[in-house]
Amino acid sequence: MKIIVPVKRVIDANIKVRVKTDRSGVELNNVKMAMNPFCEIAVEESIRMKESGAAEELIVVAAGPQQSQETIRTALAMGADRGILIQTDVPLEPLAISKLLKAVIEREEPGLVVMGKQAVDNDNNQTGQMLSAMLNWSLGTFVSKIEIEDDGFQVVREVDGGLETVRLSRPSVITVDLRLNEPRYASLPNIMKARRKPIETLTPDELGVDVTPRVDVLEVNEPPSRQAGVRVANAEELIEKLTNEAKVL
């Protein structure tokens, strides 16, 4: 089985973003970028499938600006075999990304696509679902456990009420949740080795995909900020304040 993992380059999740003064977006200059944490989990899971013999080849795909190569390299250093960069400076929406991924998938014919449930920049939580619809494949979202079966996958999904187990036919799109695994760090030798792994570069035009945005971002603002309140010394005082001042008890 061949696996494709789409990966996204985002602002490092530990950094508190700042809104630009002209309110056109968030500041991306001189900000530490990293692989979206959910994509790391998807890469890790796929590497484990390779290590267990369930998969033969692992291809990572990133759509975005030239610097997305770095994210692909990170995945290659973790253990992916080769990368595909779909290069464009147009801001990409999940619908456009899904179309680009679909074009690559039709060429590569993987048995499984593993991806993050959500990119922590725009918090869209859409791309896997959209891709599965375009391919008319089975879909498992928010997955915290994957078992590989002869003709499909049994997955555990984290849903609002608890857990749900479903069986998916192959090929399938699976989006992963945080508790699936703990991603590895790339070792220095593997980082060196990754430099020689191939990355192919394509463009939306070459794939015949129109990526014109459908949703215009009119402005981006800071959320209203909360002020730190007062300190209390004991339970009596807390209950008194919640009852008489805040009136929530």
């Binding site: 602002i11 508190k16 968030v26 922590v120 918090d123 869209n124 981006v220 603002n221 800071e222 959320p223």
Partner: peptide
Amino acid sequence: VQQVSDISEIVSDDTFIRPIYAGNALATVR
């Protein structure tokens, strides 16, 4: 269709506000 996720406010028929970056910014989108 490009879906609009997780809106927190409706500005008009086609314009919505939604939190991005873990709620550290609010985007107004059309």
